[in-house]
Design a protein around this nucleic acid. Structure first.
Lengths: 114, 114
DNA sequence: TGCTTATATAAGCAGATTATTATATATTAA
DNA sequence: TTAATATATAATAATCTGCTTATATAAGCA
């Protein structure tokens, strides 16, 4: 298999970043749908600052990207990242998390796709 | 792509485990060659207890396996592990580390393959 | 303009992590 | 049996992490 290679220290950094169930789930969700912070707050039942801090780490590492849309800041996977092939490959081993956003929609709490 | 799936919390655990440059390098080396603790001590220029403790984490998670051979305990990747497909996939994104063992051989410090 | 909502940032603290030193155990060889 | 080598384990100290609370910033709306 021919795949893109990431320097070992950088790869360890990415794995450490994703080695947290909240961030890993976030990234898996973002792999299928863009999301804003308040949606993650609902999904994870965590405080807004806690979510913001997780997202910041993902952003600082270049794994996600932000885009303001009015009041909201929409996050998405940064597909041009050097790490994207590695991350993508990894996400393939995780069960789909779409049900989490489905639940939000049913509660009328979905923002990004309205 | 059809791949084996790992529960998200468990996957995060594995990624956290591998999110350390020493352990990640160890696993990449073990992907190509079995090794004993004293070789890792040489390779990483770290204390023996530090190496032992890293290896123990890998062993506790079921990522590596040990086999005593006389005085030495030889470690190898545990290919039957549920996590092996994920780990293997991940290792494909890392540059080869064979040169590290080559250096040991040149210094006459290689154990496992004598 | 001032209020509300969404998000970010900063400070602080508790628990986790990773190294160190000291010591124990197991195997081999003299 | 004793000494040497390889490894593991325990205690501990320093650093890192991930939350909390408090506060700042930015956009939308009355």
């Amino acid at each position: 298999m021919k795949v893109s290679t990431v320097e070992i220290v950088k790869a360890a950094g990415i794995l450490k970043l994703l080695g947290d169930k909240t961030r890993l789930t976030m990234v898996k969700i973002l792999d299928a749908n863009d999301c804003c912070v308040c949606e993650f707050v609902e999904i994870f039942k965590m405080s807004q600052p806690a979510i913001s801090q997780h997202i910041r780490k993902l952003k600082d590492a270049g794994v996600v990207r932000e885009a303001r849309r009015g009041q909201w800041i929409i996050y998405s996977l940064k597909k041009e990242s050097d790490y994207y092939p590695l991350v993508q490959n990894l996400l393939n081993h995780l069960p789909n998390q779409d049900f989490k956003l489905k639940e939000l929609e049913e509660q009328g709490l979905r923002i990004s796709c309205e």
